[in-house]
Amino acid sequence: MPKLIPVADEQSKPFWDAANERRLLVHKCTACNTLQFPPQPTCRDCGSAKLEWTQASGRGHILTYFVVHDGRFGRRMADQPYNVAVIALDEDPRVNFYANLPGVPPHQVPVGAAVKVIFEEVEGGQLVPDWQVVR
């Protein structure tokens, strides 16, 4: 599926650069060790601005999902219907990611299943994380 192409900015550049090396980063608060994603200026738990990128395990579980039948993105209209799952990161389930779960037919998402991160190339060569069910 032709994913939309992320445009990195100053804050997000380390994340997208790491994705191109097939590594998944999340923000870590060095004051209280909380993980968070997407990046924010301060920690949601303690308010500290002492945040740094750290590599995540790339392992998670499927929280739930929905199926886009009538969405809004022009670039993805031809792909409908498609899955969008919410993935909870194993080391902190409060951190979640989106996934299209390539290879999983629409409506056949195994909720609760273990997943691992993979990386898909989008137009222009950028790698974007997605997730794959661990069989």
Partner: peptide, 21 residues
Amino acid sequence: NEDDHARGDRQWSAPWSTADW
């Protein structure tokens, strides 16, 4: 929504065809 690129905060959602809806 017609942009092929995901800019700003949408870089964290639009690549997977979701957004703050």
